[in-house]
């Protein structure tokens, strides 16, 4: 479903992504971890082209996302994204945050879009907050709204960029639980996170990134019990 072929990216002289090749299957949950500055966020931001790559290819559902013929808006509708800082729209209600893209990008009628939104809010457990403004919610609730907003476009893949890093400790679990539910429902997910408990529980594969490369990738079993790379061992020692 997602094919990544030897991608490279530079910020000026800085070589952020140094040749990543991977294959991610439909329904797979992939967790990416690694020290900060290793390129994990940049990597997943390339998958919906919030960042451009300078070399290599990313193919999502058979479409080369960097090709000029690809309709990038349509592609992004199929690849939902959840950010570390939630990035909800502060000037409109929770409900409108969720219905905006379906109504404007997909031209879904308002009634139907709202019905979908209420269903999603129910799913993430905060349907009673629909008419509040984002700043009236707690961080955990805001992030759940952001997940609902991402799901409203019925994406085939969801990208999570450190979704719990900006949350107070007591709110992390409510977000992780929503994500676990999603994983069980079979949505393809790529998650950048430091939550190793989450990785162990729901990941099909874990990638360890450093220096702009995927140094090691495998099942949680393999990753936690039998890491091959020195860097991975060191990282796991630090974090566990």
């Amino acid at each position: 479903m997602i094919k990544i072929e030897n991608i490279h990216k530079w910020y000026g002289d800085f070589h952020v992504l140094q040749g990543i090749s991977e294959h991610i299957n439909s329904g797979e949950v992939v967790v990416i971890c690694g020290p900060s500055g290793s390129g994990k966020s940049t990597f997943i931001r390339c998958i919906n082209r919030l960042e451009d790559i300078q070399q290599g290819k990313i193919i999502v559902e058979g479409k080369d996302i960097n090709s000029p013929e690809t309709d990038i808006n349509q592609l992004r509708a199929e690849v939902g994204m959840v950010f570390q800082q939630f990035n909800l729209y502060p000037h409109i209600t929770v409900l409108k945050n969720i219905t905006l893209a379906p109504m404007k990008a997909k031209k879904i009628p308002k009634k139907e879009a709202e019905k979908i939104a209420y269903e999603l809010l129910e799913r993430v457990g905060i349907h009673e907050q629909a008419h509040k403004y984002p700043a009236e919610l707690s961080g955990g609730q805001q992030q759940r709204v952001a997940i609902a907003r991402g799901l409203a476009m019925r994406p085939k893949v969801m990208l999570f960029d450190e979704p719990t890093s900006a949350l107070d400790p007591e709110m992390i679990n409510e977000v992780l639980n929503v994500m676990k539910d999603l994983a069980r429902e079979g949505i393809t997910m790529i998650v950048v996170t430091h939550e190793m408990g989450f990785a162990r529980e729901v990941a099909d594969r874990i990638f360890f990134m450093d220096y702009g490369k995927i140094l090691e990738g495998g099942t949680p079993e393999h990753f936690f019990k039998n890491p091959q790379h020195e860097r991975t061992k060191l990282f796991l020692k630090e974090i566990l």
Binding site: N48, L50, N73, Q74, R76, A77, G80, M81, F83, Q85, N87, L88, Y89, L100, A101, K104, A105, K106, A146, R149, G150, A152, M153
Partner: peptide, 22 residues
């Protein structure tokens, strides 16, 4: 904040829509 544009574009809105509504 830059994240507003990214979130809007990330959900499939085009530049014009993101500008107009977000």
């Amino acid at each position: 904040p830059k994240g507003q544009m990214e979130a809007a574009r990330g959900t499939g809105l085009n530049y014009r829509q993101a500008m107009a509504y977000v």
